[in-house]
Design a protein around this nucleic acid. Structure first.
Length: 334
DNA sequence: CGTATTTGACCTCC
DNA sequence: GGAGGTCAAATACG
């Protein structure tokens, strides 16, 4: 039983990685051959590409351990459910979506007071419930995909602050996105979304209103790896003049700005909308799965650096030049 | 006025 | 029966 489980899990992981990389390749093709390679589009795509690679690399690292996707936070239970063992949020299993894959992420938010909202992860979510959880200090928010009705997308997520660190959200994703969210590829929509979010945040947290354009604090941890690759002010320091320390790099926190779904759908981060006036940093999601001392994170980072150095990006303030050789990629880290 | 959020009630599972 | 999850009416907001 367990052996079969391990085998199927491994196969599943491999399949995820392949799909993830395939999707990444498609994104790169969009950059390479896309007609509309505007700077905004590029800025949207690149973080997704990087995130996709990071997720893939993380999974590869995780495969080495019996625990599976430890690095990405994608627990084995997300693939094969085990009753009562699927302790995602406070150890309580989902009671209704048992057939849907689930996984948990822990995401740090750059806090503003009174914020109880989920991290913007690139998808549009609509809150449909809010519940005080027995034994938990903080209520749990229930979100479903905005496109549930229009496209029948069944993806949901549950967001809850952790008891130990209120700046960290535990986000449990249920189901994968079957919707096509134009915001992922079209520059205008996420920007609009983020602008709305920003306005909302400003409304809600007046006493701690921090204007990013005037040097407010931004949690930049999740920018690190992106910056390492992009090395371009137009990417790492968006036009909105968000004060991002481009040279700064923390070594012991693994940062992934995207979220990987079990079906290789990854979720781009708000980082992908650099033209937004700082709202993309209201929440700065990054994985904190290594809170207690991470697993394989150094390896993952190392591999990522290898990838980054192999990625022949030449950027200037407005254009992206991609000369990606997939034959080279074939030999990369595998 | 359309859309998103809030929140109490209801449903499901254990 | 209790806890978690979802629904849907009421409300808020742009």
């Amino acid at each position: 039983m367990e052996n079969n489980t391990s085998m199927s899990l491994l196969d599943h992981q491999k399949a995820l990685i392949v799909n993830q990389l395939t999707q990444t390749k498609e994104l790169l093709n969009q950059l390479q051959f896309g007609v509309d390679v505007t700077s905004t589009t590029v800025k949207l795509l690149l973080p997704r590409i990087l995130s996709s690679f990071k997720s893939s690399l993380s999974m590869l690292s995780g495969i080495n351990s019996e625990a599976g996707f430890q690095v990405t936070g994608l627990s084995p239970s997300s693939v094969i459910r085990s009753p009562r063992s699927n302790s995602n949020l406070n150890g309580n299993p989902s009671k209704k979506r048992k057939t849907l894959p689930s996984w948990t992420e822990q995401v740090r938010a750059c806090e503003r007071s009174g914020l109880e909202e989920p991290v913007y992860d690139g998808y549009s979510w609509r809150k449909y419930g809010h519940k005080d959880i027995y034994g938990a200090n903080h209520p749990r928010g229930y979100y479903r995909c905005t496109h549930k009705n229009s496209q029948g997308c069944l993806a949901t997520k549950q967001v809850q602050r952790t008891d130990t660190d209120t700046s960290i959200f535990s986000v449990m994703y249920l189901g994968r996105h079957t919707c096509i969210q134009a915001s992922h590829l079209q520059p205008g929509q996420p920007q609009k979304k983020l602008e709305q979010l920003d306005k909302k945040q400003k409304r809600k947290s007046q006493e701690t209103l921090i204007d990013f354009q005037t040097g407010g604090h931004v949690n930049t941890k999740d920018f690190n790896t992106t910056q390492a690759v992009l090395r371009s002010p137009s990417f790492s320091c968006p036009s909105a003049s968000i004060p991002i320390p481009c040279q700064e790099k923390e070594s012991n926190t693994n940062i992934f700005s995207s979220q990987l779904t079990p079906d290789n759908h990854f979720m781009s981060s708000p980082l992908s909308s650099p033209s937004t006036s700082g709202s993309n940093s209201i929440f700065s999601p990054y994985r904190v799965n290594n809170i207690e001392g991470g697993h394989d994170l150094q390896t993952s980072d190392y591999d990522l650096c290898e990838f980054e150095s192999a990625l022949p990006l030449a950027l200037d303030s407005s254009d992206l030049y991609l000369d990606w050789d997939w034959d080279s990629f074939d030999g990369f880290c595998f």
